[in-house]
Design a protein around this nucleic acid. Structure first.
Length: 109
DNA sequence: TATATGACGGACG
DNA sequence: GCGTCCGCCATAT
């Protein structure tokens, strides 16, 4: 193994996202911070963009720190994301999610 | 190896 | 409350 640098930053993002319980959400920056690399919020989003359409990773539970959704050149993605969150019991406050209520934090070792 | 990019975050007006 | 600017760091080419 090559534990020196980041073996697979994206892979760690997927593992953490898969640990998010249903009906909960988390911000990109929170995911990066949980991986030990605060400030790499953009890389978390980049990892999501690399996810296949048949992925088992609940990428829809990863949103902006402000509670708003996001997508680059694909607004349909946001609609799917919102639909899945509502299906899990997440109540939207307009176009925003009250992270103070649904905000989830990963368990620290 | 270096340059450009990018599902972001926070600060400022 | 909303729009805009700068900075952060891993991936891609």
């Amino acid at each position: 193994m090559a534990p020196s640098s980041r073996p697979n930053f994206r892979d760690r993002v997927y593992v953490l996202v898969r640990s998010i319980p249903s009906g909960r959400v988390i911000g990109y920056g929170h995911v990066a911070g949980a991986l030990g690399v605060a400030g790499a919020a953009r890389q978390v989003g980049y990892a999501m963009a690399a996810l296949p359409p048949d992925t088992e990773v609940p990428w829809h539970r990863v949103i902006h720190s402000a509670g708003t959704l996001a997508s680059k050149g694909d607004p349909v993605r946001v609609l799917i994301q919102r639909s899945r969150l509502e299906a899990e019991g997440v109540a939207f406050l307009g176009d925003r999610v009250p992270m103070g209520t649904y905000g989830w934090m990963p368990p620290e070792p």
